[in-house]
C-alpha cells in the first residue's frame, strides 16, 4: 500500500509536469483527473488544493473548470447552431465524455482564430491501480499528439487502440462542437 502511494505520487507529479500548461488556464483539469485516486495530485498540481479531499477536488474542479472557460459552449445544440459558424471561432470547448473500457474520457480544447492551440484531458478513468498505469502512460502522449494531429487536419485515425480511439474521438467531438 505504501509503495503504491509512493508510486502514485511520482506518477502523478510526472503527469503534472507533462500537463505543465494546465495551471495557467484550467486547474480544474488536474483536480478532476485526480478524483478518487489521491489528494496527492492536488498537492502536486495546484497551489491552493493542499488539503483538499477527493470531494472538494471534484467540486472545485468542475466549478473552476466552467468558470475558466471564456465562451463555454459545451451544450448539445452547439452543433445545430453550426451552420452559421465561422472558421475564426475562439474559445474553450469541451467534448462529450466518451465511455471506454477503462471509464469515461473527456477532452477540452482551446481554439484561437479557428486553430486548436491546446487540448486538455479533463476526465480520465482513475478508478484503480491498473487504470492509473494505463493512463499515466497513454494520456500525456496523446494529449500532446492531439494538437499535432489536429494541426495536420486529421478526420479519422486508422490503427488506433481502445483508449486512443476514444480519446481522439472525444477530441473530434469537441472539434465538431467548435465548428471549425
Amino acid at each position: 500500500m505504501r509503495r503504491i502511494t509512493t508510486w502514485l505520487l511520482s506518477t502523478l507529479s510526472a503527469l503534472v509536469l507533462l500537463f505543465s500548461y494546465h495551471t495557467s488556464t484550467n486547474s480544474g483539469s488536474a483536480t478532476a483527473v485526480a478524483t478518487g485516486s489521491a489528494d496527492a495530485a492536488a498537492n502536486g498540481s495546484t497551489d491552493s488544493g493542499s488539503s483538499g479531499s477527493a470531494d472538494s477536488g471534484t467540486d472545485s474542479g468542475t466549478d473552476s473548470g466552467s468558470a475558466a472557460t471564456p465562451t463555454p459552449t459545451p451544450s448539445a445544440d452547439a452543433g445545430s447552431g453550426g451552420s452559421s459558424g465561422s472558421s475564426s471561432s475562439s474559445g474553450t470547448f469541451t467534448g462529450d465524455a466518451v465511455q471506454t473500457r477503462y471509464g469515461p474520457v473527456q477532452v477540452e480544447i482551446t481554439v484561437k482564430n479557428g486553430k486548436i492551440t491546446k487540448s486538455v484531458v479533463t476526465q480520465v478513468p482513475w478508478n484503480d491501480h491498473k487504470d492509473q498505469e494505463i493512463n499515466s502512460y497513454a494520456v500525456p502522449i496523446l494529449n500532446d499528439e492531439a494538437v499535432q494531429a489536429q494541426s495536420a487536419g486529421i478526420d479519422m485515425v486508422s490503427g488506433a487502440t481502445f483508449t486512443s480511439d476514444a480519446y481522439i474521438q472525444s477530441l473530434q467531438s469537441a472539434i465538431d462542437q467548435a465548428n471549425l
Binding site: 497513454a138 502522449i141 496523446l142 500532446d144 499528439e145 492531439a146 499535432q148 494531429a149 495536420a152 487536419g153 486529421i154 478526420d155 479519422m156 485515425v157 486508422s158 490503427g159 488506433a160 487502440t161 486512443s164 480519446y167 481522439i168
Partner: peptide, 26 residues
C-alpha cells in the same frame, strides 16, 4: 476525409495521412 495512419510504435502519433473521398482504410 483525411485519414491519419497511426504510428503504432508511438501511440497517438500519426505517421502518414491518406485522403479518401470514397473507400476504406484498414
Amino acid at each position: 476525409w483525411r485519414i491519419g495512419l497511426e504510428d503504432l510504435t508511438t501511440p497517438g502519433r500519426v505517421a502518414d495521412v491518406v485522403s479518401v473521398r470514397r473507400g476504406a482504410v484498414a
